[in-house]
Nucleic acid binder design. Structure first.
Lengths: 110, 110
DNA sequence: ACCGATGTTCGACATTCGTCGAACAAGCTC
DNA sequence: GAGCTTGTTCGACGAATGTCGAACATCGGT
């Protein structure tokens, strides 16, 4: 994949929001597990990957984090062996005003 | 499917928005063809099914209209042999304030 | 009553997606 | 360095999804 940086670290693919089609953002949000992640991030600010209770294996969790990251929804900070994830709130609100609010302040999924 | 009404007409399945999970709404919007339909409806108000230029066969078009309808995004009025579709704007804005605006006023998909 | 126009439904098909276990990589601690 | 922890990657699998052509259903008009 040649995503290897000058120091041998795997570069995290975090696209510009202008490079992400809306449909990709919407698709990323259109999954229950990922929506729960996004909501937790909106509440708690930054969180470590492992601190989510999602009812799926860590392989699946990792997959969802990747989808969110590549859809431009999250940013990842590497610290030791763990990864800290946070919402790209400001950027998202600027590019899609109202989107996150609408999705996050949903009063009932049923 | 026993969606047959008292007069033999096929009842159109148009759910209450409270019965539709957000993820279903987002999934319905997370498709290029459907997004184009929704945008056209937002601009033109009500339109007849056949008047969309989408680059897919009518079977596929029909499929997408069904997805939109069952996700609570559109309402369908039957008139003779054609169907008139319109966005459920007000309801959607009430339940997901900002969602449609955010998706519709996107300045560039790229 | 026929015919044409408008949509829907029915398989069929290829692609994508969510999920898993297992193997791997990298960092921390003793 | 050995071992534990955290997280990613790699197939594999089944389920869901977008697409199509063909058949069907309805309605309007001639």
């Amino acid at each position: 994949m040649s995503n290897i940086g000058y120091d041998g670290h795997m570069e995290l693919h975090e696209p510009d929001l202008s490079d992400v089609p809306v449909t990709a953002v919407l698709a990323a949000l259109a999954d229950d597990v990922r929506l729960r992640i996004v909501r937790a991030l909106a509440e708690d600010g930054e969180r470590v990957c492992g601190t989510f209770e999602l009812g799926v294996t860590k392989a699946t969790r990792s997959h969802h984090f990747k989808v969110l990251r590549e859809a431009g929804l999250t940013r990842t900070r590497v610290a030791g062996t763990s990864r800290h994830i946070r919402l790209r709130r400001d950027e998202l609100d600027r590019r899609y005003p109202g989107l996150l609010d609408a999705v996050l302040t949903d009063r009932a999924d049923a």
